[in-house]
Simulated assay, not measured.
Amino acid sequence: MNTITKYVVLLSLCLITANLSAQETEKDTTLLKEVNFKISALERLKTKIQDEEREFLKAEVEVVNERLSKGEITETKAEQLKKEAAKRRALNIENRLAIIDNKIELLKRNDAYYDDRDDDEVHFNFSLSKLGGLNVSSRRKPRKYDKRTTSDLVFAAGFNNAIGDGQKIGDEYTFMQSGFVELGIAWKTRLFEDNNAVRLKYGFSFMWNKLTPKDDRYFVQNGNTTTLETFPSELKESEFRITNLVFPLHFEFGPSKKIERKGYFRYSTARHFKIGLGGYAGFNIGTQQKLRFKEDGDRVKEKIRRSYNASPFVYGLSAYVGYGTLGIYAKYDLSPLFKDQTFDQHNLSIGFRFDLD
C-alpha cells in the first residue's frame, strides 16, 4: 500500500507540474500576443499622429486666412503666424513620434506588458457643459475660431390658466393650483457677422399645461363638444392636463461681452439683460384628466386619457425678459383650448424661464 501511495503521490506531482508548466507557457504566449498587439497599435498610432498634426495645422491656417480676409491682421503677420504654426506642429510630430518609438523599444526589451496611457491617444468624453447639453469631443480637437451657433437647455415653470371673451384669470380655474412646465433644447444663432446684438433662438420643447376647475367641476366629452359640468359628489381633486410638442422661435435682443482668446473668440450674454419676442407652433401629443373622490366610503382615483376634443395643432405668442440665465416668461395660445366649441378659451401662462447656455 505504501508503494502504491508513493506512486500515486509521484504521479499527482507530475501532473500538477505539467499543468503548471502548461499554464505558464499559455500565460507567456498570451503575454507575447499582447505585447505584439501593443507594438502594432503603436506603429499605427505613429501614422495617425502625423495625420492628426497635419489636420490641426490645416485648421490653424484656415483661422489665419479667415482673420486675414476680415482685415484683422496684415499679410506679413499672417505669413508669420503660418510659419510659427508649421514649426510648432513639426516639433509636435517629432516629440510625439519619439515617445512612441521609446515605448516600442521598452516593449521589445522587456518581458512585461507596459500599459502607459497618455495623451498620444484620442480620448472622447461625455459632459454636460454647464448643464446645457451633451457634448462629445476629441480631447485634442482645436477650438473653432468663430462659433455663431450655440445650444442650451430651456426650462420654464409657473402659473397657467385659460380665458375666453369676457372672462378674467381665475374665473373658471384655480389660479394657484393650475400650472405649466416646459422643457426643451434651443439653438441660438448670431444674425450679424460682427455683432451679437440680435440672435435667432429656435428649437423644440415639451409643454405641460395643467388646469384645475373650480366648484367640483370636471370636463365631459359629448361627441364633438367638451363642457365643464358639476361632478355628482365632492371632488378632492380635479386636474386637466394637456401635453404639447412645440417648436419655439424667438428673436433675442440684448448686449453681450466679446471674449477674445488666442486662436478663437466668443460672445457671452452672462450678466447681461436680454429680451426675447416670438412664438411657437406644434402638436398636441396627450390629454389626461385626473379625478379623486369618495364613493360609498371608498377613496377613488381615476386617470382618464382621451382626446377631449383638444386642438390637435397648437400655436401662439411668447416672450421673455431676463438677466443672465433667469427670466420672466409669458406665453399665450392663439389656438383655442378645444376645437369646434361654441365658446373658445385660450391657454395663458406666466412664470420663470431658465436658459442654461
Rank of each mutant, 00 (worst) to 15 (best):
I242A: 03
G324L: 01
E24Y: 10
H346S: 06
T17G: 08
Y332Q: 07
G223H: 06
A319I: 02
S311I: 05
E55V: 00
I100V: 15
V8M: 12
R67A: 05
K58V: 01
P213C: 00
R117I: 15
K331Y: 12
F37Y: 08
Q221A: 07
E121K: 01
V8S: 12
L81Q: 15
K48T: 05
D165V: 13
N36A: 11
E193G: 02
K339M: 08
K82P: 02
S151M: 12
E26V: 08
D296M: 09
F338I: 07
F124E: 07
L10S: 14
I49D: 00
K33L: 05
P312W: 03
D51L: 05
Y332M: 08
T325P: 01
K257Q: 13
Q167L: 14
N102F: 01
V8P: 01
N224D: 14
L356F: 11
N65P: 06
E79Y: 11
F175K: 13
G254C: 05
L183D: 07
V220I: 11
S40C: 03
R305W: 03
F231S: 01
I328Y: 12
D115G: 01
T174M: 01
T189W: 00
V314D: 07
R241E: 12
R89H: 14
K201H: 06
K48P: 00
A85F: 05
G164I: 03
G71P: 07
